[in-house]
Amino acid sequence: MEDCNELVLEFVSRPENVAVARVTVAALAAQLDPSLPELDDVRLAVSEAVTNATIHAYPGTTGRVVVRARLCQRRLTVEIIDYGQGIADIEQARQPSFSTDPNPERMGLGFAFMESCMDQVEVESAPGRGTTIRLIKEFPEVPAEDS
């Protein structure tokens, strides 16, 4: 049986909780002594995924968001789960610059940033059935420096 560490956060889909999720998952990842850019990648990817759940999952209202982060050896897996309206066309949602939101300040870069920060980004969703985003990142062992 693999020796894993895991934490689960559950919160209301409010914008102020995006920082809570990002900081908490980064604190878990910090147990691997990652480089600063690696940690920045984790913070950014989690921020984008939780922001998506906050903005898109429950239009006009709020709902539950669950973040499950799991550390197995040097692999971090983060699941961002909502129980909201789901994504009709996942392919289209993942296109850079695509957004269902007419607000011109919505960049449509969430998935593009997740993909550039993580090794793997998986999306499971169906209309009315919520969305699960799975972010996976490996942290290569840094060889110890000769002293």
Binding site: R43, L44, T51, P104, E105, R106, M107, G110, F113
Partner: peptide, 16 residues
């Protein structure tokens, strides 16, 4: 100390 795509959107919105 940190920015994501929402922060970028706000900067570009002010630029516009």
């Amino acid at each position: 100390t940190f920015i994501d795509s929402s922060g970028l959107g706000a900067i570009l919105g002010r630029f516009r």
